[in-house]
């Protein structure tokens, strides 16, 4: 687990927040909402992998007994 993943997630968050503001200003509320939804889904896909790895690690810890 390196720190770049956290930077990536933070960067996606910042970029999508900026884009969201400009899309809302241009009167494209639906696209702004779709964009933030897409951002959430992308980050969740990354998180699922990480959480899966966490569960595997926990499993290996308890298999020592």
């Amino acid at each position: 687990m390196d720190i770049t993943m956290i930077y990536q997630i933070a960067g996606i968050g910042i970029l999508i927040a900026i884009l969201n503001i400009f899309l809302a200003q241009a009167g494209r509320q639906e696209q702004a909402q779709m964009l933030s939804l897409a951002g959430v889904v992308i980050v969740l896909l990354w998180l699922i992998q990480l959480i899966g790895r966490l569960f595997r690690d926990v499993e290996t810890v308890f298999r020592w007994w």
Binding site: Q8, I16, L19, F22, L23, Q25
Partner: peptide, 23 residues
């Protein structure tokens, strides 16, 4: 007035997102 600013930022931010996704 509305679209010029939107599209400038859209290009840069979309590129940033693409970079972060592919990195």
């Amino acid at each position: 007035d509305v679209q010029v600013r939107l599209w400038r930022w859209l290009g840069v931010c979309a590129g940033g997102c693409l970079v972060l996704l592919l990195y």
